[in-house]
């Protein structure tokens, strides 16, 4: 029906706005030092490079872990609880 179509369109518009904002937050993060809180209370930090299109993985450089520094690494987003960076 017509009202359903309007409803779907509005949901899509809100979805687009939310997603655009999220992608802007990723752009802002590139080449910044990012702190990651992982499961098992592990904290690591690295320079953020890029994400894949599904945002399932982060590519980072100079990953500082409790066991040493990894020059290049991929972090799986499902292993991350939260991450933060300064503007």
């Amino acid at each position: 029906t017509g009202t359903d179509a309007v409803h779907v369109e509005e949901e899509q518009r809100l979805r687009t706005e939310l997603r655009e904002r999220f992608l802007r937050s990723l752009i802002l993060m590139s080449n910044k030092e990012v702190y990651f809180s992982m499961y098992e209370r592990v904290q690591v930090q690295a320079k953020f490079g890029a994400s894949d299109i599904d945002i399932l993985n982060f590519q980072v450089s100079d990953l500082q872990t409790p066991l040493g520094v990894q020059k290049e690494a991929i972090l799986r987003c499902q292993d991350i609880i939260s991450y933060s960076f300064d503007l």
């Binding site: 802002l28 499902q78 991350i80 609880i81 939260s82 933060s84 300064d86």
Partner: peptide, 12 residues
Amino acid sequence: QSTSVRVVMGHA
């Protein structure tokens, strides 16, 4: 002085 951004993953 400073502004920080924190992203909490949806699954957590």
